[in-house]
Amino acid sequence: TVKFKYKGEEKQVDISKIKKVWRVGKMISFTYDEGGGKTGRGAVSEKDAPKELLQ
């Protein structure tokens, strides 16, 4: 599970739902399947990112 803040809201998403991951400076950005055909997005700092996300 990845915990992150998006627009001031605390969120979390299961690693299995993450589609795409990329690095922006010291942040790790990602998109994930929100269900219902929607794609969500989020970002975590490199130090807070789970190891599975960095692979």
Results as ranks from 00 to 15, higher is better:
38 K>T: 08
35 G>Q: 05
37 G>K: 05
15 I>N: 02
43 A>Y: 14
43 A>P: 00
22 W>M: 05
33 D>T: 05
48 D>Q: 10
19 K>D: 08
22 W>A: 03
54 L>K: 08
22 W>P: 00
31 T>C: 08
27 M>L: 13
53 L>I: 07
53 L>P: 00
36 G>K: 08
14 D>H: 12
53 L>V: 04
20 K>Q: 11
44 V>K: 01
8 G>M: 04
23 R>K: 10
54 L>G: 03
25 G>D: 06
27 M>Y: 14
9 E>V: 13
47 K>G: 11
26 K>M: 12
43 A>S: 14
21 V>N: 01
12 Q>S: 13
40 G>H: 06
15 I>W: 04
5 K>M: 15
54 L>C: 05
9 E>M: 12
51 K>T: 13
35 G>A: 07
50 P>E: 02
52 E>D: 09
49 A>H: 01
35 G>N: 04
25 G>H: 05
40 G>I: 05
6 Y>I: 10
17 K>F: 09
37 G>Q: 04
52 E>C: 04
6 Y>Q: 08
22 W>L: 03
32 Y>W: 10
25 G>E: 03
30 F>S: 00
36 G>I: 07
19 K>W: 10
21 V>P: 01
24 V>R: 10
52 E>T: 08
35 G>M: 06
53 L>A: 01
7 K>W: 08
10 E>V: 15
26 K>W: 07
52 E>S: 11
7 K>D: 08
4 F>K: 00
29 S>Q: 15
47 K>A: 13
27 M>A: 05
37 G>V: 03
35 G>H: 05
30 F>P: 00
44 V>W: 02
22 W>Q: 05
16 S>E: 09
24 V>C: 10
51 K>C: 07
16 S>A: 13
4 F>N: 01
21 V>H: 04
7 K>L: 09
53 L>N: 01
11 K>Y: 11
13 V>M: 04
50 P>A: 04
28 I>Q: 00
6 Y>P: 02
29 S>G: 11
19 K>L: 15
45 S>R: 15
40 G>F: 07
25 G>Y: 04
2 V>D: 00
49 A>Q: 02
36 G>A: 11
44 V>Q: 01
34 E>K: 12
33 D>E: 08
47 K>S: 13
25 G>W: 04
54 L>Q: 07
9 E>H: 11
10 E>I: 10
37 G>R: 04
2 V>Y: 02
39 T>A: 06
27 M>W: 14
24 V>F: 09
50 P>N: 04
12 Q>L: 13
27 M>P: 00
25 G>R: 05
18 I>H: 00
53 L>W: 08
